[in-house]
Design a protein around this nucleic acid. Structure first.
Lengths: 110, 110
DNA sequence: TTCTTACGTAAGTGTCAACTTACGGAATGG
DNA sequence: CCATTCCGTAAGTTGACACTTACGTAAGAA
């Protein structure tokens, strides 16, 4: 997850992920969508690949890339953990509010 | 989302988020869980706060922090976009496979 | 073979960020 | 008042990283 998060924290790489989520694209075709140099895109592709976020396939002299969504599974699970906590907080708040009507106690100090 | 992603890309900050997801904790109490210096944690808290991932509340001489899950909403939506695409890929593959069987249905037995 | 296409890789540079120690400043207790 | 606690901020160092240009390499065409 560490690698996936760092990889996605770059806006250029996020754009690449969106570009190749529907169709396979060659490295050059990807680079043509950006103003930065082609080697820079090549390095971004290497980062995405080593983070498990894209797949590479060779076809003749070209290299085709495509988003590999499995690499985001861990991160997705991490995020959903917080959503579950939010729900349990709501539940706890409701229960605490119910109990407060029985035992009114003030322990704050100022 | 940019800020939230960069904030979460640091392992120390992810640990902090998990520490304060259930209960409010003071800055010092948070720092006591790590080996890095207290000012370092203070800086991490500032990053998390400016990314909208935690809330700060003052109580006397202490500052209490707590995870603010709303800051992750955009990132969650970004991730789910890729999951939707994966489903549509599966659907497209199934439909293509079905069509193939219809076009050549007179002399082949699957 | 030789040229061309389509890439990755090497090397260097500038910027950013995570960490350290030292200091400042607000709230409380004496 | 002064001292202590709790915490953010300042300043400096180190390492990571995004980018550049220049070069290397594999596949196919002439």
């Amino acid at each position: 997850m560490e690698a996936a998060l760092k990889a996605m924290s770059d806006p250029t790489r996020r754009e690449i992920l969106q570009l190749v989520q529907h169709e396979e694209l060659a490295a050059g075709a990807i680079a043509s969508n950006f103003t930065v140099s082609r080697p820079a895109i090549s390095q971004h592709l290497a980062v995405l690949k080593s983070a498990g976020l894209i797949d590479e396939r060779r076809s003749g002299v070209k290299r085709l890339y495509r988003t590999k969504v499995e690499g985001m599974a861990e991160l997705k699970a991490f995020l959903e953990m917080f959503w579950d906590v939010r729900l349990s907080r709501l539940k706890a708040a409701v229960e605490a509010d119910t109990k407060k009507k029985e035992t009114c106690d003030d322990n704050t100090k100022s």
